[in-house]
Computed example of a mutant assay.
Amino acid sequence: MIQAVRKMPLSALAGLVITLLFFLMALSAPLIAPYGLGEVVGKVWEPSSARFWLGTDNIGRDLLSRMIYGGRTTIFIASAATLISFTIGSVLGFTAVVMGGWCDVLLSRFVDLIMSIPGLIFALVILSVVPATILVLILVMAFLDATRVYRLSRSVAESIYAMDYVEAAKLRGEGTGWIVLREILPNALSPLVSELGLRFIFMVLYLSTLSFLGLGIQPPSTDWGAIVKENSDGLVYGITAALAPAIAIATLAISVNLVADWVLSLTTSLKGGRS
């Protein structure tokens, strides 16, 4: 494992460094942002300068500061929603396999029902009725994504549950909790960790889409999708303020994807080496 980490490809290393920089930026946003989140400090859509590195936005706020604070919100919501969705989805997926019978059928059919509804439309309906607070956004996104995690975790757990060491644990009289936590979970971590990065990127894109449609983060808070929406009118006049958050979203997506691909290839090679 240590040798594999040392042989990390340059692309994966670059992705890891960029991802860590984004997360460090999110954690230290109040310390590194030149101006306040809603502070009007210049004219409308000023170009890049020594004072405003990325220029100003549609009402004269420093775009770099908005980007830093928006990145903090985007990364926090996407991370929280991803962790919740993986916790709920994996627990329910493992439980469905271990319990079997009516429990498996009931959970699987409920997940099929939710997945039959387009996720974006489902979220838009909920957010048009419920206030779009940060907590509501996290819960809605996590609920919708937990169905996909359930499918993955159930599929992985189903193959693990048929292994001899699980049968041995059942013959020893181990309970359901022991089998899930000590037998299934450790062997299912590799595909789940690989999928974790991809689902995180999906959450970033999902949140940005909701904010661009006006049902995501509400003022005075902001995220990258909301910044794109605020400055999209400037594209008609050649103002590139809307491109900065779009580039940030794409950069984060690519960097996390590079790391996820490396983790997947690493776990595959380790499995091949053990076999």
Rank of each mutant, 00 (worst) to 15 (best):
1 M>Q: 11
6 R>D: 00
8 M>Q: 07
12 A>G: 04
12 A>W: 04
12 A>V: 06
13 L>V: 11
14 A>E: 00
16 L>Q: 03
22 F>Q: 06
24 L>Q: 03
26 A>P: 06
29 A>C: 08
32 I>Y: 04
36 G>R: 01
39 E>T: 08
40 V>G: 05
41 V>W: 05
44 V>A: 00
45 W>R: 10
46 E>P: 04
48 S>L: 11
52 F>T: 10
53 W>T: 11
55 G>M: 06
57 D>Q: 04
58 N>P: 01
60 G>D: 05
60 G>H: 10
60 G>E: 01
63 L>N: 07
67 M>N: 11
70 G>E: 04
70 G>R: 04
70 G>S: 04
70 G>M: 04
78 A>C: 07
78 A>V: 09
82 T>K: 01
85 S>G: 10
87 T>Y: 11
88 I>Q: 06
90 S>G: 05
91 V>E: 03
93 G>Y: 10
93 G>L: 09
93 G>F: 09
103 C>Y: 12
103 C>S: 11
104 D>P: 02
104 D>S: 10
108 S>P: 02
108 S>M: 07
109 R>N: 05
110 F>P: 01
111 V>M: 12
112 D>S: 05
113 L>T: 13
114 I>L: 14
116 S>R: 01
116 S>A: 15
117 I>M: 13
120 L>K: 00
123 A>W: 01
123 A>H: 02
125 V>R: 07
126 I>V: 15
126 I>N: 03
128 S>H: 07
129 V>S: 13
132 A>N: 10
133 T>A: 04
134 I>M: 11
135 L>W: 12
139 L>V: 13
142 A>P: 07
143 F>W: 10
145 D>G: 00
151 R>Q: 12
151 R>E: 11
160 I>W: 01
163 M>K: 12
163 M>N: 12
165 Y>M: 05
165 Y>I: 03
166 V>K: 03
169 A>D: 09
169 A>G: 09
172 R>A: 13
174 E>M: 12
176 T>P: 08
177 G>E: 02
179 I>C: 05
180 V>S: 09
183 E>F: 02
187 N>V: 05
187 N>G: 08
190 S>D: 12
193 V>D: 02
196 L>K: 06
197 G>V: 06
204 V>Q: 05
206 Y>T: 13
208 S>N: 04
211 S>T: 08
214 G>S: 06
215 L>C: 10
219 P>M: 01
219 P>D: 04
220 P>E: 03
221 S>F: 14
226 A>C: 00
229 K>G: 07
230 E>A: 12
231 N>H: 08
233 D>Y: 14
234 G>A: 03
235 L>C: 02
237 Y>L: 12
242 A>K: 05
242 A>F: 03
243 L>S: 02
244 A>S: 11
247 I>N: 00
248 A>Q: 06
249 I>E: 03
251 T>S: 13
251 T>M: 13
253 A>T: 11
259 V>T: 01
262 W>Y: 15
266 L>M: 15
267 T>E: 09
267 T>R: 10
268 T>D: 15
268 T>S: 15
272 G>R: 15
273 G>Y: 14
273 G>D: 14
275 S>Y: 11
